[in-house]
Design a protein around this nucleic acid. Sequence first.
DNA 1: CGGCTAGTCATTTTT
DNA 2: TGACTAGCCG
Length: 752
Amino acid sequence: MDLNPQQQQAVEHGKGPLLVVAGAGSGKTRVIVHRVAHLIGKQNVHPSNILAVTFTNKAAGEMKARLEAMLGLAARDLWIATFHSTCLRILRRHFEHVGYGPNFRVYDEADQLSLIKECLGVLNIGDRLMRPKSALDHIARAKDRCVGPEEFGADNFYLQKVSEVYALYQKRLNEVGAMDFGDLIRLTVKLFESHPDVLNYYCNRFRHVLVDEYQDTNHAQYRLIELLVGLHRNICVVGDEDQSIYRWRGADITNILRFEKDFPGARVIRLEQNYRSTKTIIKAAGGVIANNAGRKPKTLWTQNPQGEPVDVVSCTTEREEAQIVADAIQRLKHEKKSYSEMAVFYRTNAQSRPFEEVFLKEGIPYRIFGWIRFYERMEIKDAIAYLRLIANPKDDISLSRIINVPSRGIGRETLLRLREFAAARSLSMFEVLKDFTVTTIVRAVTAKKLSAFHDMIETLRQGALKRPVTDILHDVLEKSGYVEALASQKTTEAQDRLENINELVAAVDEFEPQTDEPPLNQFLDQVALVSDVDAYDADAEAVTLMTVHLAKGLEFSFVFMVGMEEGLFPHARSLDDPDELEEERRLCYVGMTRAKEHLTMSYAFRRQTFGTPRYGVVSRFIDEIPDELKKVHERLEARSEKLEARSHKSNYLASSVSLLASDDSHFTNNESRLPAKVVMAGVTGHDSDFDQRPPEERIGQFAVGIRVHHPAFGRGFVKHCEPSSAGHKVTVQFESGFIKRLIAERAGLVPL
DNA sequence: CGGCTAGTCATTTTT
DNA sequence: TGACTAGCCG
């Protein structure tokens, strides 16, 4: 296939800023790859002067593989990597400039949470005042904006507390010799800003910078790129604002919208021809995304065949939905289609269960992505924690994790005292283990256990930095007694864990060091930055189950988007925020445009959530698909379910609304569904998406789920409400994180 | 110390 | 519904 004129222009563009607006399926990777090849082949740019940044290892790997095929050896000198691994590589070389030692490690989210919990404990901040996850989110988002603990502005009490946590968290990170994901970017920016010589080196080295998925960059990443291309401005970014789906993770869509302002004189090239999907799918997806305001109008087109209409299937329950999808998959299989060409996308991981069950029952091979990722499994994290402690004895979090795994009779009280003891002396916990004065805080027997643990780790550390990782791991698993402990348990769970450990051993066996740095360090760096989709194998003969987020960048002939219900997709937490709703719509667009031949979208009237039923209304996104492009299959059973629900005079608010609103055409009639939207908009962002209690329990203006405003605490929503003589006794979850019990009228609470 | 129970809470999405 | 926690007891 040749390049089309727009692609050709993008490939041949010379110096200066270039924005390639690349619609879904428009051959974006192709353009990047060809452009790199062109720079080298036709514009005499040396491969080592090119930096290409992506978001996933998979994207980077693909690009590299294609370039190696095109360029051969020359491709070796290219720097193609993710943002995070790029920064890690840079920071490894200049750690001293950002206040770290050479053996610093990268903490994943679980590690971060452990450290946050420790900080909350030290600061005496209770769980109900601030959830660890909430604190971490605030801190991570601050880091995405390059905001350090010093600059963290706090204009209310809660943020004040977060600020304290942030400061301590950052101090502790540094003490234990670790960085989190956000630090990798933020500290690299800091490094460049404070050390012009270093920046200069990289500016000179990278004469051409290419950025993939530019719509997903956050502010810190933008700053990084801006610094890197400051002098030559040879920057080429590729992206599509319609596919920006990581706002919640700090992505700033305005980066791409602002590009021409940020880089005056920028050339803009639009790739609007889609090579992936049928006309029908493109138009259907276009119909949905057109409802987003604040986007640059863009019309995708294709020369591909018209194709079949989008199937819209209503189901009674999520179980039936799974069954219908399974049946359809088997029909396709009978038509000699490959399972590898089929995928099921859902909004949240929790939705995968019925599909797994039914697929198992029907004997349909599947593989599932997300959920518990390999490197997040308990046993894998344990093994890695040993390795990390060996590589970096200051790593208190890893030590805390494994000091009693397998059980060595070292309990939480001992651990707590150990931590305080170490903190008081500004030492790491490992250093303190053998200190004889430890006997002042623990009993002699315990001190002996601690010392034994210390000696074991110390033995494992001997020569560790020079040895192959596979040898170290082998020793760890044996000398720690970890495998032995698992093997002695006869449970199937222990069996599974052993198998996973074996998988890890196999993975480590295959690991090849790339540089002359200690292999252990290289391995741990790699582990810190991999995800499961990176291991996605397009040819495996199995149906793919994944969240829509993970589907970005992939394509399948037959796509099933399931759970298309208001409150699920769009997710309940987005319903009251226009920006978030637009993000949901983009997410839906991303999902739809993965389909090459056929797209099926389904929803269920009744769905078990947390063990209780919830009644759903068809997603607005389905309404937004032009009627002539979809074929609605309303199952008889589903209809009788509705009638039955009506006759039961259900207490469920949402169901009663949907009943009133819906007859046969409830999914095509926007007007009729409006009441549902209005009701649901009031009950977002908490445990239940629908108020499930009868009307008499939903009291007046302070009903459960109602959004309220408090003069001091700001916005929030009512979690519980009961009438009393003094007024409405309500429990309010405030956005600032507080949960308060108060009398609504007395506290000056105002419904929003 | 470690195992058990009861009670609480949660589900977006992840480099 | 099921995962996680705090708190209790052997």
